[in-house]
Design a protein around this nucleic acid. Sequence first.
DNA 1: GATCTTCCATAGTGATCGATACGAAATCTG
DNA 2: CAGATTTCGTATCGATCACTATGGAAGATC
Lengths: 222, 222
Amino acid sequence: MEDLEKSRGGRPRAFDPEAALDAAMLLFWEHGYEATSLAMLREAMGLTPPQIYNAFTDKETLFRRALARYHDREISFALDALGAPVRTREAIRLLLLGAAQAYTRPGKPGGCLFISGALATSPQAQGVADALKAYRKATEAGIAARLAKGFAAGELPAGVTVEGFAKYLAGVMNGMSIQARDGASTEELEALAETALAVWPSEMQGSAILKDEADAGPFCRD
Amino acid sequence: MEDLEKSRGGRPRAFDPEAALDAAMLLFWEHGYEATSLAMLREAMGLTPPQIYNAFTDKETLFRRALARYHDREISFALDALGAPVRTREAIRLLLLGAAQAYTRPGKPGGCLFISGALATSPQAQGVADALKAYRKATEAGIAARLAKGFAAGELPAGVTVEGFAKYLAGVMNGMSIQARDGASTEELEALAETALAVWPSEMQGSAILKDEADAGPFCRD
DNA sequence: GATCTTCCATAGTGATCGATACGAAATCTG
DNA sequence: CAGATTTCGTATCGATCACTATGGAAGATC
């Protein structure tokens, strides 16, 4: 809802805004919001300061655009997993294994931008910290929403609440992001994910409808 | 091994270095290394810049001193838990529940300084990021060392390696730190910890020596 | 008490921060 | 082509960054 080629006249841009945004996203992902200076952005994006400010208003707006792009391009696996027509446990498994992949992509910074972007900030950047927190909370809420459907179908482990279990799973994902930052490999994160899923026995409930997982059943599909 | 009251003459200090260090630690904990400016430190420590530099050399040294103090004063629970004369599962339980407490202490910033201090940094602060990573790795190594003893005694869950399980547990702790930053309560983190421990059945092995947990058995004590 | 050493307070260092002023260049509209 | 509009490149802006030069003050040593 923005770059719809208005072209209301005037001198045309001499660069590709999306490519520039990608370069900025990678830099923010690597160094975080505050530690990424305009000088670094200028070099990585191949632009002059006025070009950056004309196209993206200011540094904070550029960062928020990068967050949105990251959400759309780099972690679409999450929405896919939570919306997949599979049982609840398998959906969460896809989510965690997707995170293991996404947090260790070759050529990309390790971990998740929503965490690396900023955890502790200066008071001036509180708004940015809040925006990142909102993305993290949204992830947890997405997990909770998927779990709620599984809860109704009796698919959750005994002794957990939807919110509590969502907080555990979101916490595991956050922990995976830090482990990725600290050099963990894809395989190590996948093993971590499988261990985390061991709290959840594959065979649930007395209703032993285990076969045909790709078939109908207590699924979900927003 | 430092403040042993040399007093080699000269004008005495007009402030308490330990109190000043505590103030700096809290500020770094709250805002992270790079986002904490000297102006903020100056106000929080109640000192002038020359006082700070004379006592702590420079900002990075001050931060490293704060890290050491944090390790000694704020998270001694970790070494206590890993060295406690209890079964392996209980030791890890003490570790995770201790983290739930330490990450949500009233009057202290949420989460763990070793994570909030810096995850992504500017290239100039790479040394600080590495120091924090070393502390995180040391935690994981401490967990692995305790698990190794439990492994020899057959106390670990089936299908896990010592290193892999340590990475899971360290990851859960890291995730708890972020959840604490995002506002999770002590109780919520405790519930998260208990959920994480559900991967580990309380009754291990065929050898059903369950009673007298505080008694002898396949324990450990460095 | 003379001297040495260390710390204090004031003021300010060069460098870098995010963000712009300005006028020329390029394209669209009429 | 004339006018309007937008972006271009160059050269910065004031504010803040981590840090320090300087000279006087306070206590230890001889």
